[in-house]
Amino acid sequence: MNKERLATEFCGLHLATPVMGASGTFGFGVEYEDFVDMADVGAILSKGITPEPRSGNAGVRIAETPSGMLNCIGLENPGVEVFLEGILPKAGKLAAPLIVNISAGTAEEYGELAAKLDVDGVAALEVNISCPNVKEGGIVFGTKPEAAASVTAEVKAHTKKPVIVKLSPNVTDITVMAKAVEAAGADALTVCNTFMGMAIDVERRRPLLGNITGGLSGACIRPLALRLVWQTAKAVQIPIIGCGGIQTGEDAVAFLLAGASAVEVGAENFRNPRAVVTVAEELDSYLERHGIANAKDLVGALEA
């Protein structure tokens, strides 16, 4: 791939490509070292970190659905202390910048978490206000503009790192949330997290997931996420990371044209552990084919 065509800046971070691994599908980056050269990865979005360790939801947590999957993991993670002591020393030194995804139960806890993560090795924070699988935190903040704004302001007050807020698609009007978070000081947005869904085993008359409902991801959500990126990009000035069902370079191009400055690849990493790099390679061949000097030139360039 041509690094000059793909290199980009996002919130002051120098990225080798605009293609990142989405939180919850890319581990802490280290899990993918067998498959990709981290120098070819735009950024690593860590598994969601919470103040305390969490064991997640009971029962079946994964279900395949048409062209996608449901999950109800429930933010299983070792907690911020174990992350700082045991994971960051290695994950923070990979060739790709590590953006830490955070979740907490109150705005104050989000702030405390941000303060603890204001350390070397952490390139930026992605604030998860959109996990559909936990009762406290997560989605509660993702559906109320005032709550989302207070979390954003609290995180901003406790860190020098760029703050990216990951929005939920499970709202009536995502632009209301986007504007509230922008006004509260967010440096960027990720659009979007998983869509709430469910699946039923009709033979047994039981839900497929232990938590009954879960978050839908994969190719099936791509048109839904694309529409949200398009709407959000028209409503805010801050940059957007497009996320939702991206599998190929051409999918990434579509999100850039709709107004995203970068993209995250999520569930596709489970099918193809090289997906973050293959999407970047295919994006590069699109740029070459169309004689475009840099991926940045595509951002918001939709003719409509």
Binding site: G24, T25, E31, D34, R61, I62, P273
Partner: peptide, 15 residues
């Protein structure tokens, strides 16, 4: 049940 097989989806964890 697992999605990834490489320790990132956390579908298959247990205590």
């Amino acid at each position: 049940r697992m999605a990834c097989g490489i320790g990132v989806c956390l579908g298959c964890t247990f205590e």
